[in-house]
């Protein structure tokens, strides 16, 4: 997958975006929708890790938990509390969906931090599907639960009457921008972080003076990326909860 065209120039070689390339795992040829690619592999690894933590780790059902079970319980409690606090009691039944999103994003982000790994959540195709799935689900749910009253979300009844149409336009625009910001925030954060890591790693081949600084930079950015991985999974999830709350309780 490495691009040969750059090696002719000599000197520095930067391929910060090569890590994001989707390629076939087996053989040559075009990538069809069903082709087994590195996307498939890293998503499968995420599934395996999730099963290891949440299923194998909790198989003893111990009242006094082991370490792994304790981690699984903490994640469960964390998301459960988030859903309950943000959406209220009637949002609890959507907890499995939200937990699925959270755990997938969390594991994809962290697995992407392994050296040589492919970060599935750094692709806008993936995050856009996640975000639009949330957007359509929440919108449809809003109309099913509240009927036309769901449109009250855009009609700010606490504002002066003259301002309400203007506010409605702004609310509608902001509503439709949600999936875009929701998806680009996640993919952008991860992609930028990983690309910066690669750039620093590229400088590490420069020489005795620059290399140590570059390596320190890699370490620092890596630490930041660990933080970003967790925070972006959290942000994506809590925004999903907020959108869900709007669908369940559209009044301001």
């Amino acid at each position: 997958m490495a691009d040969e065209a750059h090696s002719e120039g000599g000197g520095l070689e930067f391929h910060p975006l090569d890590q994001f390339e989707v390629h076939r795992m087996f053989g040559e040829g075009p990538i069809h929708w069903y082709t087994v690619t590195n996307v498939t592999m890293w998503m499968a690894i995420a599934v395996v890790c999730i099963v290891l933590l949440l299923v194998i780790g909790t198989r003893k059902r111990a009242v006094v938990p082991s370490r792994t079970q304790s981690v699984a319980e903490t994640l469960y409690g964390f998301v459960y509390t988030m859903v309950e606090d943000v959406t209220g009691k009637d949002g609890i039944k959507y907890f499995p969906y939200i937990f699925t999103l959270f755990i997938f994003i969390l594991f994809s982000n962290f697995l992407g931090l392994l050296p040589m790994a492919f970060t599935t959540t750094s692709h806008i195709a993936v995050t856009a599907i996640l975000a639009f799935a949330v957007f359509f689900t929440v919108t449809i749910l809003g109309f099913v639960k509240n009927g036309a009253a769901f449109l009250g979300l855009f009609w700010v009844s606490s504002a002066p009457l003259a301002l309400r149409p203007i506010l409605a336009v702004i609310e509608i625009i902001s509503y439709f921008v949600r999936p875009v910001s929701h998806s680009i925030r996640l993919a952008g954060n991860l992609m930028a972080g990983h690309a910066v890591l690669k750039v620093f790693a590229g400088f590490a081949q420069v020489g005795l003076v620059v290399a140590p600084i570059a390596i320190l930079g890699v370490v620092a950015i890596y630490a930041l990326e660990v933080l970003v991985s967790a925070i972006q999974a959290y942000v994506f999830t809590i925004l999903t909860c907020v959108y869900l709350k709007d669908a369940l309780h559209p009044s301001h």
């Binding site: 990538i31 690619t37 998503m43 692709h123 195709a125 993936v126 599907i129």
Partner: peptide
Amino acid sequence: FPNQIFWL
């Protein structure tokens, strides 16, 4: 995209 979306 189709590949990623399918596997996602």
